[in-house]
Design a protein around this nucleic acid. Structure first.
Length: 487
RNA sequence: GGCGACGUACCCAAGUGGCUUAAGGGAGAGGUCUGCAAAACCUUUAUUCAUCGGUUCGAAUCCGAUCGUCGCCUCCA
């Protein structure tokens, strides 16, 4: 099946056609680094990772740019409220720059833990102030801006198709419903491109510009940085669903007004992770971080697996039950892989048709707008299918894992190590290199006799002796398995 | 007030007109194996898709109404 995505622009599934053959340019809205990312944030980055891996699985070379918003923006257009960066600074006593560095690092740590392929480049907003100013100049030259007492604004009435992404009914918007109305704005949808620093206070982050000292508006960084690294028009732009009406709508307005060309061809948006009381949000104070999960004994990949279980365009209600369910299922998948690796029955002839069928089932699932739950179901069908050999199963599963990203090829078998508690030693992965020494073999046989005679005390003693000699005995159905302990 | 999304078994969840009298996973139950624990494996779990009505030869899938849940219209994934 051809690769297709649900495009927010037009609200329908479309076959993906890249601008350049076999290449895909992708821009994803990243983190505002004033606090730790919560697992809801990470859900979106996981969805984008699935997308990127699917592109790669389809042999696209992906250039992925993700912004790091390290500049604070005011809470509202009316120049009131607090700047999140400055607020974080006041809270911790660190400078805004230190805050940004610290939380950027925290974000990158989570990315790694979740086995998310890093972006080709992470672009920090403060590194590209010049590009942002240049773009505002471009808009000014073309007559899309006006200046008020507190900044430079974009006049949305100059753009005939403003709001096409969100299908906004401008008339129906009720500005001032939730925030103060800014009297100087010409249209309710107008937004700031550049904000002036308050006259009486000095901001930690501020820059000179043709319009006065200040800082960039909320949306210009994405337009400027995506243009610098991906060009005027690029393939895919992603973000959270909340960005559709404001942030992405305004990005499109700025970029298309400036370049006169279409901005991004495909817009994909991830739905929220929610809690019982609705959307997970930092402003509520308490929120779940990846560390909250790992502190409770879950692995980051348990969470990744959990996110694979629900389609990215559907909201997901977080609960510990759901995470437990994911963890159990993921463990079982790994146990199955261990078993397959151990038994590793060779492939039989005539299996290839079935193998190819599964492969195309998987491809069809992921290519159909990232149907990861379906892809996971195909993976399980492979695991359960008795018609193909372990060798072929493993090959298939490892291939699928290029998209799933669960590290199925190299995970450490933590679960089993913990479970065979009476053994008190690690079960080595490697098979025995040279034959088992006759001495050990003899003890193993004696133990088997003891077991048969139900003399378990003696059996356990013999097992310990074998252990001292460097071998592990594992009871299996129909006999024992012996492994060499690595030193 | 405007815009948008969703409601499938005990839980999560795919399916969006006939291939499906509904995938897959978790949990539960029963079983296999076992000296014991765990794991693993097997079997089992919705005549039904929020409710009601309509369209159709045929609907979980389309239309309408009702009920319920949620998001956006401030920054936010």
């Amino acid at each position: 099946m051809k690769l297709q995505f649900f495009n927010t622009l037009g609200r329908q599934k479309q076959v993906f056609e890249a601008i350049a053959p076999h290449k895909a340019g992708m821009y994803t809205c990243g983190q505002t680094v004033y606090d730790y990312p919560h697992i809801g944030n990470m859900r979106t980055y996981l969805f984008e990772d699935f997308l990127k891996r699917i592109l790669m699985y389809n042999s696209y070379e992906v250039t992925h740019i993700m912004n790091i918003t390290d500049v604070g923006h005011l809470v509202s257009d009316a120049d009131e409220g607090e700047d999140k960066m400055e607020k974080g600074s006041a809270r911790t006593g660190k400078s805004v720059w230190e805050i940004a560095d610290y939380y950027t690092k925290a974000f990158i740590d989570d990315v790694k833990l979740l086995n998310i392929i890093p972006a080709t480049k992470y672009t920090k907003a403060t590194d590209y102030i010049k590009e942002q100013i240049d773009m505002i100049k471009c808009l000014e030259d073309k007559g899309f801006t006006y200046i008020t007492s507190d900044g430079v604004y974009f006049d949305t009435s100059k753009l005939s198709d403003y709001g096409k992404l969100a299908q906004i009914d401008v008339e129906g918007l009720e500005e001032g419903k939730r925030i103060e109305f800014s009297a100087e704005k010409r249209n309710k949808t107008d937004f700031a491109l550049w904000k002036f620093s308050p006259k009486d206070t000095k901001r930690q982050m501020e820059w000179k510009s043709p319009w006065g000292i200040g800082f960039p508006g909320w949306h210009i960084e994405c337009s400027a940085m995506s243009r610098k690294f991906l060009g005027d028009t690029f393939d895919i732009h992603c973000g959270g669903i909340d960005h559709i009406p404001i942030h992405h709508t305004n990005e499109i307005a700025q970029s298309e007004a400036c370049t006169g060309k279409p901005f991004a061809h495909y817009w994909l948006h991830g739905a929220f992770l929610e809690e019982d009381d609705g959307k997970m949000s930092k402003s509520k104070g308490e929120f779940l971080c990846l560390k909250t999960l790992t502190d409770k004994g879950y692995s980051p990949l348990d969470y990744r697996y959990m996110c694979l279980g629900t389609h990215y365009r559907k909201r997901l209600l977080f609960s510990w039950d759901v995470l437990d369910s994911a963890k159990n299922s993921f463990n079982r998948l790994k146990q199955n892989i261990i078993r397959m690796k151990e038994e590793n029955a060779p492939g039989k002839s005539g299996e290839q048709d079935r193998v190819n069928l599964y492969k195309s089932d998987f491809l069809e699932s992921v290519n159909d707008d990232l149907n990861m739950p379906q892809a996971l179901a195909v993976t399980w069908e492979v695991v359960r299918n008795t018609g193909i050999s372990d060798k072929n199963k493993l090959e298939l599963i490892y291939d699928f894992d290029r998209v799933l990203g669960l590290e199925l090829k190299k995970f450490v078998d933590e679960s089993r190590r913990g479970q065979i508690s009476w053994a008190e030693f690690e079960i080595p992965d490697a098979p025995i290199k040279q034959g088992i020494p006759s001495e050990v073999l003899e003890l193993i046989n004696k133990r088997a006799e003891a077991k048969a005679a139900k003399n378990f005390k003696l059996a356990d003693e013999l097992r310990n002796k074998v252990r001292e000699l460097g071998y592990v005995i594992i009871d299996k159905k129909g006999g024992v398995e012996v492994k060499e302990i690595k030193n």
